[in-house]
């Protein structure tokens, strides 16, 4: 499988702040990759570097085989609309629709019209006066109608109502089928987009903590719940990513797959084993280092 976006050892520092720390990811061509993580995890910085809007402090990045920064032929293959995108003064929707085709060789006016109608974007209101959801809708129009081989969607759901989100999903899937492209989508509405994603990359504190196919990523952790002592025995030293304790009951998200021996022991001790959702996975990796269960028990006593 061809790699569309190849990131090797990329770090990005802003003064003393390290936004990305030795990030290495290979995103296959025509895949839909979820870029997930907490606020400030480095998602927007990574997308900016992929789109050539920013440059890595260290490391190497290739998009469709070329370093994107100041490489015109590559930049014409990428569309990236930021969640806080700035537009020229006094811009209205028709300005965007008139100029975008000049830059996007694959621009599809029919898709743009369909999205504008479906998302009910006001035509005459200056863009700077649009609501958060309406601005997201403009970004979706640019992102999908450009039909760019590398499409970066930064929080496309922000402020969108449920009908608009449904329309976005429908047209996104139809567009991918009609013209396959590599899509990187960052979002906090994880469950809503989970079924769309082929792969997930989870960032935390600027580092890659998960980079795998979606189903394999979900199997990389296990959810255990039950009596605290029993859960502790089932864990058998597995790293705990996130834990919640209430009274004598504990639920944990632990690293590692749920193998047969774990299931047998859990069954014997009355501990419930569940498969993690994508949201569980992201939440667990974003959680601060949990206290050891032994310590919690000592505090309780």
């Amino acid at each position: 499988m061809t790699t569309a976006i190849d990131i090797r050892g990329v770090s990005r520092r802003f003064g003393r702040v390290t936004a990305l720390d030795d990030v290495s990811i290979a995103m296959p061509e025509h895949s839909l990759v979820g870029l997930l993580g907490r606020n400030g995890a480095g998602k927007t910085t990574l997308m900016s570097i992929i789109a050539g809007q920013d440059r890595a402090s260290e490391g190497r990045i290739a998009v469709l085989g070329h370093t994107p920064f100041e490489h015109g032929p590559t930049l014409r293959q990428i569309i990236y609309v930021r969640d806080n995108q700035r537009y020229p003064d006094d811009y209205r929707l028709h300005h965007v629709l008139r100029i975008a085709p000049a830059f996007a060789p694959n621009w599809d006016a029919d898709v743009a019209d369909e999205l504008v109608d479906g998302l009910r974007i006001p035509a005459k209101t200056p863009l700077k006066k649009l609501s958060r959801g309406q601005l997201s809708s403009v970004a979706i129009v640019l992102g999908l109608a450009s039909r760019a081989p590398v499409t970066l969607l930064d929080e496309p759901y922000l402020g969108l109502d449920v009908t608009a989100r449904s329309l976005f999903h429908t047209i996104l899937l139809r567009e991918i089928a009609a013209q396959p492209r590599t899509i990187v989508l960052s979002t906090h509405l994880i469950e809503e987009s989970a079924s769309l994603l082929d792969r997930v990359v989870i960032l935390d504190h600027g580092k890659v903590v998960v980079d795998d196919e979606t189903e394999a990523a979900r199997d990389s952790v296990v959810l255990l719940s039950g009596n605290t002592d029993a859960v502790d025995r089932v864990l058998s030293g597995r790293p705990v990513l996130e834990s919640h304790t209430m009274g004598a009951m504990t639920s944990v998200t632990a690293a590692g797959a749920a193998d047969d021996s774990l299931r047998a022991l859990a069954d014997e001790l009355g501990v419930q084993v569940a498969r993690a959702t994508l949201q569980d996975l992201v939440s667990a990796h974003g959680a601060e280092t949990p206290e050891p269960l032994e310590l919690k028990k000592a505090i309780r006593v």
Partner: peptide
């Protein structure tokens, strides 16, 4: 001023290089 200050970010979004 506005030809650069408010147009540059959008030009990069559309795929322009800084040189262009």
């Amino acid at each position: 001023v506005q030809s650069v200050a408010t147009t540059f970010p959008f030009a990069l979004t559309l795929g322009s290089t800084r040189r262009s």
